[in-house]
Design a binder for these strands. Structure first.
Length: 574
RNA sequence: CGGGAUAUAGCCUAGUGGCUAAGGCGCCUGCUUUGGGAGCAGGAAAUCGCAGGUUCGAGUCCUGCUAUCCCGACCA
């Protein structure tokens, strides 16, 4: 590409809105423009990088026997009603109507459509397995889009879905995809970790996230300092377990007056006891049923674990009216003993760890002291509902968990028959018996991967692209555009590198040297090939490796092989 | 959805109720310059987010709306 013809513009300043490095730098480099909140235009530089990521994805998936399809963005509500998600997907699902007043949505994901598609073709076990993927636009009406491409509303995603005869075959497929993802992100030149993850709304019971390690990451990851255990903090297992309490030392419960003490902090302060002496009692609505959730006062309820523990489709905080109805008191005074309305009680292991705890008394302005698990109340479900903390013991070994920030660029799920059953995606086995296909699903955020690469690889001068996904692998910078021999050397080199199959740019603009250097640093070409009058007299050009800042003079005749070797090495997956 | 903030030229910003809304970046013309975002001269570019209101007078004050960002809640 001749930069003089490239559609782009670089800038020295960034808008106040851009907060994270990838957003700021992509803006300054003219790669993206914001069209609306969470919705962006991608200019040629961005599109080139995206395409390279997509190519890597396609190559690695095809190696595993995956086949590419293309499914609609606009999807009829019927499919979503069939899977049950039309009801509980919530406002993130952008719904619209056509001229005939029929309901549609913009696809935030494609389980429904693909399962429907496959069900029309699937007849026999002989056809399986299938693994289908697409690279396509998704729309999710995020409550709070932010950080440029990191959390947009409209974005490009590779989503894949596998169909197998049984759980065993599906799990083999799962690990095959795990390997493919590992290969993909390695080839993209990213430093990442695969971590145990929660499955959330999408369902299923096994999942890994591929997290690019970067300071600006939105996710908290906990990993063991001595074994290979790593998990998203919302999934990471805590060292707690259910304790058997003896009655020894348990004292009589008693209601105490605690006016206007609604939060743990207020009541702890008022009674002069540590937060860990309290039982935090929060009423949730779980699949339309009120549930009382208990946890020790110094811990927080992990809604993701709660949802999993109850095999629920969704968990939401109850509103004040429901709190009143269940507990008989205003918010802040609920407790497990003496509820006005008996509801299911779910408790974290932590409430079994102490005696004579304090909870709400289900009476306005009163708390109950000396509440003991087992004697005074029991939970219908007792489990691990808290967040693991850095420093906690590793659930797999004797090591300690340490924390990292991560950007989730991919996730793999084992789904089971969550979609194939309601959507009647069935096959006949050897004996003529019908079974739902066993599914897995696998996603990669393409734009987010690009943004994550920048988050992980930049300095104060600009981006530092991994060679495999750089918009251009190298740039040729003829410095004195008024000197014919400099211009000619640039043109020759440009032609020769391009003929050798390299993706290079030629900065043929009538600009001063400093200007070109600044632009080249900002755009982050892995390699800058500088052609200046001085070194050219000696038959040499100067190469600058963007990543290390290293500069070396090389005879013109050797440039091609040097660049070739450099790029080959940079793009190799280690 | 709660809290906070912002909206002035393509971009970044200044602008105390009062004259023709100011500067930088970028853009155009000419000269000059050519190894780290040069210099000089000239020029184009603004419905001050939208709608009301207060006022002799509003970019500036008030109300409503919209959009955007930040923190939190939320988030395959």
């Amino acid at each position: 590409m001749r930069i003089s013809q490239l559609f782009y513009q670089t800038m020295k300043e960034v808008p106040r809105e851009a907060q994270v490095p990838s957003h700021q730098l992509m803006f300054r480099a003219g790669m993206i423009q914001q069209l609306a909140s969470g919705i962006y235009n991608y200019t040629p530089l961005a599109k080139k990088s995206l395409s390279k990521i997509e190519t890597i994805i396609r190559e690695e998936l095809e190696k595993k026997g995956c086949q590419e399809v293309l499914l609609p963005v606009v999807q009829p509500s019927e499919l979503w009603e069939k899977s049950g998600r039309w009801g509980y997907y919530g406002p993130e699902l952008l719904r619209l109507k056509d001229r005939k007043d029929n309901d549609f949505c913009l696809g935030p994901t494609h389980e429904e459509v693909i399962t429907d598609m496959v069900s029309k073709v699937l007849k026999s076990y002989k056809q399986l397995p299938w693994n289908l993927f697409q690279i396509q636009t998704k729309f999710r009406d995020e409550v709070r889009p932010r950080f440029g491409l990191m959390r947009g509303r409209e974005f490009t995603m590779k989503d894949g879905y596998s169909f197998d005869v049984d759980e065993e075959a599906s799990k083999v497929m799962y690990w095959k995809m795990y390997d493919a993802y590992t290969a993909i992100f390695k080839r993209c030149g990213l430093s990442f970790r695969a971590v145990d993850a929660a499955t959330g709304n999408i369902g299923g019971d096994m999942s890994h996230e591929f997290q690019v390690l970067a300071q600006s990451g939105e996710d908290l990851i906990l990993s063991c300092d001595s074994c290979d255990y790593a998990a998203n903090a919302e999934k990471a297992v805590t060292p707690r377990s259910a304790q058997e309490l003896t009655e020894e030392g348990m004292e009589q419960t008693e209601d105490v007056h605690t006016p206007a003490c609604r939060t743990i902090e207020e009541i702890a302060d008022y009674l002069k006891r540590p937060a860990s002496d309290f039982i935090k009692s929060i009423i949730y609505v779980v699949d339309e049923e009120p549930v009382l959730v208990l946890i020790r006062g110094d811990l927080d309820i992990n809604e993701s674990k709660l949802q999993t523990a109850l095999s629920a489709n969704g968990v939401f905080l109850a509103d004040d009216a429901l709190v009143q109805e269940v507990s008989g008191a205003g918010t802040g005074f609920a407790g497990p003993v003496g509820l006005k309305k008996q509801v299911k009680i779910v408790a974290d292991y932590s409430v079994t760890e102490g005696k004579n705890m304090v909870s709400g008394a289900n009476k306005d302005d009163y708390h109950k002291v000396n509440v003991n698990y087992g004697r005074d109340y029991k939970a219908d479900v007792l489990g691990d509902l808290s967040f693991a903390q850095p420093g906690d013991k590793c659930p797999k070994c004797e090591g300690k968990l340490e924390d990292h920030r991560g950007i989730e660029v991919g996730q793999v799920f084992y789904l089971g028959t969550k979609y194939s059953e309601p959507m009647e995606c069935n096959y006949l086995d050897r004996d003529g018996k019908s079974h739902p296909a066993v599914m897995g699903c696998y996603g990669i955020g393409v734009g987010r991967t690009m943004a994550a690469a920048i988050e992980q690889n930049h300095d104060e001068d600009g981006m530092i692209w991994p060679a495999a996904i750089a918009p251009y692998e190298a740039v040729i910078l003829p410095l004195q555009m008024n000197k014919d021999e400099v211009v000619a050397a640039g043109e020759d080199l440009y032609t020769s590198l391009r003929d050798a199959g390299m993706d290079v740019a030629l900065d043929d603009r009538e600009e001063r040297a400093g200007f070109k250097f600044k632009d080249a640093d900002l755009l982050g070409y892995p390699l800058q090939i500088v052609i200046g009058a001085r070194s050219l007299e000696a038959g040499e050009v100067e190469l600058k490796i963007r990543k290390t800042g290293e500069k070396k003079n090389i005879p013109l005749a050797e440039v091609k092989s040097f660049v070739e070797n450099f790029l080959k090495e940079e793009k190799s997956a280690d």
